[in-house]
Design a protein around this nucleic acid. Structure first.
Lengths: 354, 354
DNA sequence: TTGTACGCGTTATCAC
DNA sequence: GTGATAACGCGTACAA
């Protein structure tokens, strides 16, 4: 409104110039102090810092971004909202916590991009790709063939996934767990304890987590010389409803155990079993995946694979910011450990180890 | 780097000037087209739009923010992370979904600010107050006396809370539920069905949700002429562990029902009861609050108050953006409806209505 | 209806 | 060590 430097409108934030005037130096010097640059005398620095402190000044991020081309913000992208944030599940909020822990610590803001139910994919992608408020992206629960990846790579945008990539592997940084081995461990545990007709209700097979857990299941059967029976493999998605439906489909066949691709699915199985008057683990054993907090609380407590979701988020954020800051060049693949947690749903006393 | 307009460095984003050149018009005309301003001939507009489309151009948000003083982004602030994101709980992620649904629809970005465990409050507050990447804030699960509010009001920052404010009421926009009445309804349901020694394990009493639910509990007792027995009131926090502990404390006293201030607490109660060999609802009735998805899944299924968390988030976001856009002036208080969901934990068949 | 010119608040590049 | 001054990319009075 006014061009008069001496009178600042009320409520108008201060700027470098104002601070400089108050400190009796030039704008450039204030900038140097703020950015911790050398070549400022101790005395000047102290004076300027005092004024900054006194005024509670902080530099305008938009102006800064305009010249530095950096926003000091990252984005979290969740394309498949219905799967990822099935509200049964603490996976998502735990991941967020892990991520923000690091972004906060490393002085970055965090933008959240959830694909909405009515959204078409193309618009969602454009919204993210065109938004230039972020220096990089963490992509969670995307389909392995999601076109987003091609666009990100083409645009040269830094990104990290929390699933194993199946395409563009040489361009993709990721942090995940060894889903194949973990699932295999779970199923082998069932086999070791006398279950031989083991069914599985899978997660989304277009997400590597789902795909890999099915592979682990197959591997376990194969190692034990148990034939792979497609009747016992119910393709589904990572949510409770699918577990519930899957259980009902399985009724047509004989089985003595179910490996659920995650705990939400296991929850659905338990609900169906209960309605059908089937008892776990007496009528069939059940093993889940994720170790959500609720697992101890179920009846019976759920045997499951524990995975370090918080750490996954934290590692992803660190990796992304390292990438942005140029501290990491070659594509990184970080694998986090998992653990089989034996409770009661698998029919083995939790005292005796696997 | 280069001042030569005719040669753009590879990977350098286009700007208005470039588009203008390609379209054979001036920069301002392109700006007008992008901002849907009048006084552009249909022909010019079409031409410019074609170039924009062809180049996949979108304006630099930092530059835009610098001049408009608007970021088209809002922030979500969660001060009490341990309470709000107790990983038992879908409340938080559901709220996020509700919020982002609206922010997306109204073309705003969403920033996430979670107070970290090791964080001191003062630093957290500064981080938010000094960050100018947002046009307004949604504050969730803050203590009613959180100093943040005073700062926000002083700074003239638009904000909306999803709890009832106890101070600065005339300056605070909020959307919440009628916690008092809802809690009262829950407890009256217990009374009506013969329970007279009703205990409660409260939520955080420095959050209005916790305070109000306790008030509702008192009101119900009072209406029924049941004396208020402080032995039966366990001050606690909104998480499962506190429910577990609270249940154990209650063992010293006689009671025939528990009103848990949220479902997470009820979960803890159920776990403790199970370990103690107490049966619900035979040994005591139990009612929760929230109606998290898992409630149907518990043993027994949990009677609880349903609250529309998704809608809460959506209303909050709409209200905030209305505020930012100047469409709303006087402080708004939006109250959303709740409903008592009768299942089995209260000892009443779910068929017969409370 | 279109174009010119200035300002938004920084950082970066020079002189001094 | 310090201070002008030119970008950064956009919106917007004002002139044409």
């Amino acid at each position: 409104m006014t061009n008069n430097n001496s009178i600042r409108p009320i409520n108008k934030a201060m700027n470098l110039e104002d601070i400089a005037a108050k400190a009796g130096v030039s704008r450039s010097t204030v900038s140097r102090v703020i950015n911790n640059e050398p070549y400022v005398s101790a005395k000047t620095r102290t004076k300027v810092e005092a004024v900054i402190e006194e005024e509670g000044f902080s530099p305008n991020p938009a102006a800064r971004t305009l010249v530095t081309q950096r926003t000091k913000a990252i984005g979290i992208v969740i394309p498949h909202i219905l799967n990822a944030i099935s509200s049964d599940d603490a996976y998502f909020s735990t991941l967020l916590r892990g991520i923000t822990e690091v972004t906060t610590q490393r002085d970055h803001a965090t933008l959240l991009w959830l694909e909405q139910t009515g959204d078409d994919e193309e618009r969602f992608r454009r919204r993210i790709l065109q938004n230039r408020m972020m220096d990089g992206l963490i992509v969670a629960s995307a389909a392995t063939n999601d076109p987003l990846f091609a666009h990100l790579i083409e645009a040269g945008t830094h990104f990290v996934t929390v699933e194993r990539p199946t395409q563009f592997r040489e361009h993709t940084n990721y942090v995940t767990i060894d889903n194949v081995t973990a699932a295999q461990t779970a199923v082998e545990h069932l086999i070791k304890h006398g279950r031989h007709r083991i069914a599985t209700i899978t997660g989304n097979l277009n997400i590597s987590d789902g795909e890999d857990r099915l592979t682990g299941y197959r591997n376990a059967l194969e190692s034990a010389g148990i034939p792979y029976d497609t009747n016992l493999v119910i393709p589904a998605q990572f949510n409770r409803h699918n577990g519930y439906q899957g259980m009902k489909e399985l009724l047509n066949f004989k089985f003595d155990a179910i490996f659920a691709a995650n705990d939400a699915i296991a929850l659905g199985v338990m609900q169906a079993a209960r309605e059908l008057g089937l008892r776990i683990p007496d009528d069939f054993a059940l093993v889940g995946f994720d170790d959500m907090n609720i697992a101890t609380q179920l009846n019976p407590p759920l045997t499951t694979i524990h995975q370090p979701v918080l750490e996954k988020g934290a590692h992803a954020a660190n990796l992304l910011i390292d990438l942005i800051e140029g501290k990491v060049k070659t594509p990184q693949a970080i694998l986090l450990p998992t653990e089989l947690i034996i409770r009661e749903s698998c029919g083995v006393k939790s005292k005796e180890t696997g």
